[in-house]
Every structure is written in C-alpha cells, then in structure tokens.
Design a protein around this nucleic acid. Structure first.
Lengths: 212, 212
DNA sequence: TCCGAAGCTGAGCGCCCGCTTAGAGCGCCC
DNA sequence: GGGCGCTCTAAGCGGGCGCTCAGCTTCGGA
C-alpha cells in the first residue's frame, strides 16, 4: 500500500519507499530511461550506467528488467490513485470535487510526466499477472471519477446523458497530458490543471462553475 | 481483419497506394505487429512471417525496419489529416464544422486504431529527419482545429478563454481514443464519434448544440 | 581478531537481433 | 531459345542483448 515517504528529517522524497539506496537509484534511472526511449529500447546496461553502477548490480536488487517496470508501474499507479481519491473524497459539492480531482490528477500527470509515461504506455510489456494487477488499479481510477459524476447527476448539478462514456473521456483527457506535456513548453502543471478542470466542468454541464 | 474496401469505379483499399503487392502485405503485417507489441519489441522475422515470406524478403522492398515505420507514419498521418481537413472545410457554421471534424477524426482513430496507435505512439523510434517530417504533419492537425475554434469565437458562437489550450485538449481527447478503444467493447466508432462531438461542443461553450 | 553476510564488479555465456549474400525460380522481350 | 532483371529464399554474420557467476571489498558482531 502507499505509505508516507518521509525521511527522519521530515522531507518528502519521490521514491522514499524504495530501499536500499542503490535499489532506489536504479529505479529512478530506469524511470528516466523508460520514459525517454521506451521499455524495449532501454538496455539493462543503460539503466545501470545512469545509476553509476555495473550492469550486474541491477540483478542484486531486481530479478529481471521486467520486475523493475512492474515496481515502477505499481508505485506510480498507487500514487496517482491516491491523488485522485484524496480529491474525490474531499469536502464540497460534486462540481468542486470534480474540479479538484481533475486539477490534481492533471497536475500529477504533467509534473511527473516521466513516471506517468512509463506507467501509462508500457503496460503491454508486463506479463499477464502483473498486467492484471495494474489493470485492477486503473479500474479504481475509473470508479473514483464515475462516482463523482454520478453524485453530480443525482444532485441535479450535472447534465450528463452518458455517464460511462463521459467518465472515459475525462480520464482519457487527463492521462494523455503525460504524452504531450513538455517541461519547456509555455504552461506549468498548475496552469494545465486549472484549464482542464474548467473544460471538464463544461463537459459535464455543471450548473454553476467557479469564476474563471 | 478489414482489408477490402469495395471499389465502385477506381476507389482504392486502405493501403492501395503501396505497391507492389508484396510491399503492401509486408506493410500491413508491420502495422499489425507494431500495434500489438510496439516497434522495438517487433522483429523483422515476425513481420515477414505474418506476410508469409522469409525474413530476407523484407529488405527487397524496404531498406530498414525503420523505413517501414516511416512509411506507415507518413501515410497514416496524411489520411488522418485528410479526414480532418475535409470536415474542417465543409459547409456550415463553426459548431457544425467542429462537430463534424471531431466526429470523423474520432471515427478514424477508433476504426483504424491499429494504424493510429503506431502513428501516435511510435514517433520516438524514428530518426531526427523522419520525426521532423511527421511533427510538421501534426502541426497541420493543430492548425485545422484551431482554425475552426477561432472562427467560432470570432462569430460569437463559442466561449473559449484559452484557444491554444482548448485546441490541444480537443486534439488530445480525440487522439487518445486510439489508446483505449477496444473492438470488443460496447461502443462502435460511430457512437464514440457522436459522444465526443457533443462533449467538444460543450468544451467550447457552443451557444446552440445540435440535438443530443 | 576473525567470520560470514551483503553489495558490487569484470568477464563472459548463449541467444536472437537486424541485416547481407549467393544463388534459384520465373516471366518478358529480342 | 536465351539472356536479363525482378523477386524471393536458405544460410549465416557480427554484434548487442538479458542475465550469470566467481571473486573482491566492506562492515557489524562475537
């Protein structure tokens, strides 16, 4: 399960739950390499090199290259799901909750777009059981978003003829941010999040949107 | 597999412009394989095998495996751009043109999702100059959609605070259909196209939408 | 002081990759 | 009929891949 990632000093560090230190460095190197070139185009020599180690060192901490991808996918999905759920379960009406969910989910996919790319686009490189585990996590994303939209419809705040289809569209819109987002582009993750939250409220026909 | 688009007076099948026949069969096999496993995970032996030929036969028609990907990407993008432009330049107001553009673009990405996947997600496997060529084609997609939205804003039909951002979002939404669309799922390409056209009209705040 | 476990490296194994080459089959034009 | 060019195959080359293993270093505990 996803737990707090704090050192004794209290600082939050991205892959804090991965120990020992060498294993974490290898995993961070793998995320970089997979995001840049793709899983199949990345060699174990490249990963080890980025982590400042010999190729053989990788196999002390991970059984195979695929296990690295699996760990990255699981942790990444859990983080994204955590971000989404926190927003979905927050205080406020459906419109506020949906806006906050989209805002934070998009912010994560933009800010952590290297991880997000690996997590979203390398699923097929996993074996059947690892893939099944990840797919289950994805369905929880879907359920979280659908839940908010259903609440909004029930409350009469939203006008949505096709709840399942709209849910897919909203999630798809957010996830695809990981594909096109560019750190050197004109927008910050916060700005994209705000823009997308507004667009999604329009998609669900929210009766009263927060001021732009 | 859908191969034969019937000809009434000379209209061609999906990859009709690729000759000779053996080159076309190899290309179709490559599209299947790339879409299924990804470019880097696909071997030239696999492609040739699917086309019913020996591995060496591939190199009579294509200089390298990368050239195959390049040809697929170029033709695929040109087809998609053609679909989009035809709709963008059709008769009617901005709302009708935008709806038709989204409807047909989405229909293409759903119906031809194998090609679309290769075209959209394997761009990084291309060399610098081939990639530059494809990126140029993408910018034309962007310009086509932005043009319609600008028309709608100028005519007072749309309410769009951020035209560039909304353009990216609309295209992103359509393109990502290629990732999640499933032939065995509950929706046909036509249905997804209709749903998405409605959602996009909401996103741009179209004053009067066609009947749902 | 010594010992065993843990972490890591240099060397390298066996496999399969993209791609090449020599040559066979076959239709076409003179 | 015969040479030619196009298409295709069987065989295989060089190389880089994922991964392994023997052995070195480091270090905490008895």
């Amino acid at each position: 399960m996803s737990t707090a990632e704090e050192t004794s000093g209290g600082e939050v560090q991205p892959w804090g739950e991965v120990t020992p230190d060498a294993a974490r460095r290898l995993l961070v190197a793998a995320v970089e390499a997979f995001a840049e070139r793709g899983y199949h185009a990345t060699t174990t020599r490249d990963i080890a090199g980025r982590a400042g180690m010999s190729p053989a060192a990788l196999y002390i901490h991970y059984k195979t290259k695929e296990e690295l991808l699996h760990r990255i996918s699981r942790i990444g999905h859990e983080k994204a799901l955590d971000v989404l759920r926190t927003a979905a379960e927050s205080e406020g009406g459906p419109a506020e909750r949906l806006a906050e969910a989209v805002r934070s989910f998009v912010r994560w996919h933009a800010g952590q777009h290297t991880v997000a790319r690996v997590v979203q686009y390398e699923l097929d490189a996993l074996g059947p059981e690892a893939r099944a585990e990840i797919v289950a996590l994805r369905r929880q994303n879907d359920a979280a978003v659908r839940g908010i939209i259903e609440d909004g419809v029930a409350a009469g705040d939203f006008d949505v003829p096709d709840v399942r289809g709209t849910t897919i569209a909203v999630l798809s819109l957010c996830i695809d941010v990981a594909r096109w987002f560019n750190v050197n582009g004109p927008r910050t993750p916060d700005e994209v999040g705000a823009l997308y939250a507004d667009l999604v409220l329009r998609m669900v026909g929210a009766k009263s949107r927060p001021r732009p």
